[in-house]
């Protein structure tokens, strides 16, 4: 005979849901172990006389320099100058990237007409434009912002164009089956579908923005974090150079984090965003 037993399951709790809501503080602490640990070790090595400190100052001296710059107000001036350039260049470059990427991504004609030229321009190392920009736009803000904008443009352009090209046609068809108008299709299907790739592109563009602001400021500026670098080199102040580098690290991280923060509410549907 068959012996069939039926087990009725217990109620499933909501335990799985609560695991997701772990505070983000834990991740932050884990991430800090390596840099803070390295700094503390180096400080200890310096205090015990194990390392020569003239060219590689210990963290305490870097913070001292930073503090001095902060107190006399110079640091703010430099940060504001640099951030203004990055923001303007990044804003202009990524706006142009989004517009042109959307255009070439959605229209085959536009792609045939524009993409070869843009790809050729992309092949030119951005820094090669510097002499020309200086001739055309002068040595002040405009040429710096143009350089940064140029650097930020390409990752955004490529990212947006690729995202639209790779759009899942099956999902677009759902929009058509529900008789969405062209604008509704763009707003309800296209935009959310290309958003993740666009955010990734913007993040890499903001990284490039900082790279190019340093290049621009190294080549001649009277203020800005890049100027602090040059100044520190010429006056033999490695602590000032390292203080500036530290500022770049922190500002770059903050900008990246801001982009993620703004984008997060729109991307919680993604696996990757649910996890971080």
């Amino acid at each position: 005979m068959y012996d069939i037993r039926v087990h009725v399951g217990e109620g499933t709790g909501l335990a799985e849901a609560s695991a997701k809501n772990r505070p983000a503080g834990g991740h932050l602490a884990i991430g800090l172990i390596l840099p803070v640990g390295a700094a503390v070790l180096y400080e200890l090595a310096f205090r015990s006389g194990l390392v020569e400190a003239r060219l590689m100052p210990p963290p305490s001296r870097i913070f001292q320099t930073l503090w001095k710059l902060a107190v006399n107000g110079e640091l703010v001036t430099h940060i504001v100058a640099t951030m203004y350039r990055v923001a303007a260049g990044f804003g202009l470059g990524s706006a142009a990237g989004i517009l042109l990427g959307a255009l070439t991504g959605s229209s085959a004609t536009a792609r045939q007409a524009l993409d070869p030229t843009l790809q050729a321009l992309r092949a030119i190392p951005s820094l090669a434009w510097v002499p020309l920009f200086i001739l055309w736009l002068g040595i002040f803000e405009t040429s710096k912002i143009a350089l940064i904008a140029g650097g930020c443009f390409f990752p955004v352009y490529l990212g947006v164009m690729g995202a639209i090209e790779n759009l899942d046609r099956k999902i677009v068809e759902v929009g058509r089956a529900f008789r969405l108008s062209r604008t509704a299709l763009a707003r309800r299907i296209l935009l959310p579908a290309v958003l993740p790739d666009t955010i990734v592109a913007l993040r890499s563009a903001s990284g490039l923005g900082f790279m190019f602001v340093v290049a621009a400021e190294l080549m001649g500026a009277s203020e800005g974090l890049g100027y602090l670098l040059v100044d520190g080199q010429q006056l033999g102040k490695p602590d000032q150079i390292l203080a500036s580098i530290l500022c770049f690290a922190i500002l770059g991280k903050i900008c990246d984090w801001l982009i993620v923060l703004v984008a997060r509410p729109f991307l919680t549907w993604q696996d990757s965003f649910a996890r971080t």
């Binding site: 099956k170 999902i171 068809e173 299907i189 958003l195 549907w269």
Partner: peptide, 9 residues
């Protein structure tokens, strides 16, 4: 359709 084709967002 053959696949659910839900909008993931």
């Amino acid at each position: 359709f053959q696949e659910p084709r839900l909008l993931p967002w």
